[in-house]
Amino acid sequence: MKQSGGGIPTPGLVIVDPPRSGENNMAIDEALLRNANSDWPIVLRVYQWERPTLSIGHFQRIEDRETIPNLSDLPWVRRKTGGGAIVHDHELTYSILIPKRDDQPTKGHNELLYRAIHCAVADSLRALGWNARFSEACKNKTPCTMKTINGKNQEPFLCFLRRTPIDLVVGDDKILGSAQRRSAAGLLQHGSFLLRRSQSALELSGLLDASKGSSAEPTNREFDGWIDFLVASLMQGVSQLYPTHWYNGSLDDLFGDVKEKDVTSI
């Protein structure tokens, strides 16, 4: 994949955030896109959720969760990005903000970013011995994405039951899905890296479930190393498109003295 620019690298801020409520997590990402400007760095935020939460895509109907057992009991929040609903339980969530800059061409980069991120995570997983590949190379067609019929979206409610050609699968299971929101100020990409099956979505297997060849019992601590893995992979993916000088920080680097609880109202 070609890099878009040469010369001076773009600054890139890495934020590994503590677990937050669904409302706070989504409000922070909304604030990132709403306040983005050409002076901002690229932002890579990796986070978890205080408790299992359902996030639904921007255009999804919350009533449709009734079609899936166990989802009705979960707190839910609406994302600004598209795509299907995600059970944020034993998974890691990321958001990437690419502010629009005059000196940085972005035409056609929307899908390229999606592909670059998934490609980087796939490469990293393969280096660890996992058989990770794009969905387009996966011969299993069920469950799969259904096309829009007569203007009505017929896709499964849950993101991880849908397939686009560049979703990342291990075995027959999708383990990484992403979605975007574009604006005049920039591009926000969300993604979910599924590590373990959730009791709220038993039909979805995560990367570390026994069916993938790992016999380890699930523990919370096992996710710690995967945060570093995901951050490194995402940095690599972004850098494929935008030569980036990465540094670690927090939301304070963007919102200054604004109290954390007020970030969401900026």
């Binding site: 895509g57 990005t81 598209g82």
Partner: peptide, 13 residues
């Protein structure tokens, strides 16, 4: 307005 394509939401100006 807004439009969603594949999995991206874009504004209409």
């Amino acid at each position: 307005g807004e439009v969603e394509s594949v999995k991206a939401v874009s504004p209409l100006y």
